[in-house]
Computed example of a mutant assay.
Amino acid sequence: MAMNIQRLGPTWAPAYRQLMLGAYARHPEAFTSSPEERAALPLDWWQRRLQEKDQAQERVWGATQGADLLGVVGLGLETREKVRHKATLFGLYVPDRHRRLGIAKGLLDELLTHAQGLPRLRVVQLTVTEGNHAALALYGQAGFRLFGSEPLAVAVGDSLLAKLHLWCDLDGLRRS
C-alpha cells in the first residue's frame, strides 16, 4: 500500500496523540513539551489542533498508510496584525521504524507548498535543538537558514540545551 501525505482532520486525533506522546518520551531534547504535560490534555485539545477549516490557526499533515500514521508536521499561523506574515513549523516527527524513507522530506515539502499558497505568509520559522544534525540538514536542503541560537532554551533533566532558530523566505521559494 502506498504512503499518502494529507492534512489531518479530527478523526486522526487518537493516532496523532499516540504518535506525539511517543515522540515526547523518546526524544525529550527535541520538544519543548513534556509527555506528562501533553498526556494530561483531553482528546478534544488534539482534535482542535486538527481542525480542517481554512481559518484554523494550526494545521497538521500526516504521512499515512491506510489507518497507520507514519509521521507528522504542523504549521502554526500568527494572528496578531504585525506578525501575520509569519508562521511556525512545529512537531515534525517520524518514528525510527519509518525513517530513511523520505517521509520527513515529503511532509516538509507539503507544508512549504501549503505555506507558499497563503499569500499573506512571507516567513516560516522553526527551532531545532543544537546538535540535531539530521534535522538541520533536512531543513537546510529545504531552504531554511539559521538566524540565531538561544542558549539554555530547554531543560531536560539536569541539562539545559540550546535551540537554534531557523527561517525560510517563502518569497524566495515562490520565485524559484
Results as ranks from 00 to 15, higher is better:
1 M>Y: 09
1 M>D: 09
1 M>V: 13
2 A>C: 06
5 I>M: 01
7 R>V: 06
8 L>A: 08
9 G>C: 12
10 P>N: 01
13 A>Y: 11
13 A>L: 00
14 P>I: 02
17 R>T: 04
19 L>H: 08
23 A>G: 13
23 A>N: 05
24 Y>W: 05
25 A>N: 10
27 H>N: 08
27 H>A: 10
28 P>E: 08
29 E>M: 09
30 A>T: 14
33 S>T: 08
35 P>L: 10
41 L>Y: 00
45 W>H: 15
45 W>C: 14
49 R>G: 04
50 L>G: 14
51 Q>H: 09
51 Q>M: 04
55 Q>I: 11
58 E>A: 14
58 E>N: 13
59 R>L: 13
60 V>M: 00
60 V>K: 11
61 W>H: 05
63 A>V: 01
65 Q>A: 12
71 G>F: 09
72 V>P: 11
73 V>R: 07
74 G>D: 03
74 G>R: 02
76 G>A: 13
78 E>Y: 01
79 T>G: 11
79 T>L: 11
79 T>H: 10
80 R>M: 13
80 R>F: 05
81 E>K: 09
81 E>L: 15
81 E>M: 14
86 K>Y: 13
87 A>C: 00
87 A>R: 11
87 A>S: 10
89 L>Y: 02
92 L>C: 07
93 Y>W: 03
93 Y>N: 08
95 P>C: 07
97 R>Y: 08
98 H>F: 15
99 R>W: 07
99 R>Y: 02
101 L>A: 09
101 L>N: 07
103 I>W: 13
104 A>P: 06
105 K>D: 14
105 K>G: 15
106 G>Q: 10
106 G>N: 03
108 L>K: 00
109 D>K: 14
110 E>H: 15
110 E>Q: 15
112 L>E: 01
113 T>P: 05
115 A>C: 09
116 Q>D: 04
117 G>K: 03
118 L>A: 08
119 P>C: 12
120 R>C: 06
122 R>L: 02
122 R>M: 01
123 V>D: 01
123 V>M: 12
127 T>D: 01
131 G>T: 03
133 H>S: 12
135 A>M: 03
138 L>V: 02
139 Y>M: 00
141 Q>R: 15
144 F>C: 04
146 L>R: 10
151 P>M: 00
151 P>G: 08
151 P>R: 03
153 A>N: 06
156 V>H: 05
160 L>C: 09
161 L>C: 08
164 L>P: 03
165 H>I: 01
165 H>S: 06
169 D>R: 04
173 L>K: 13
176 S>L: 11
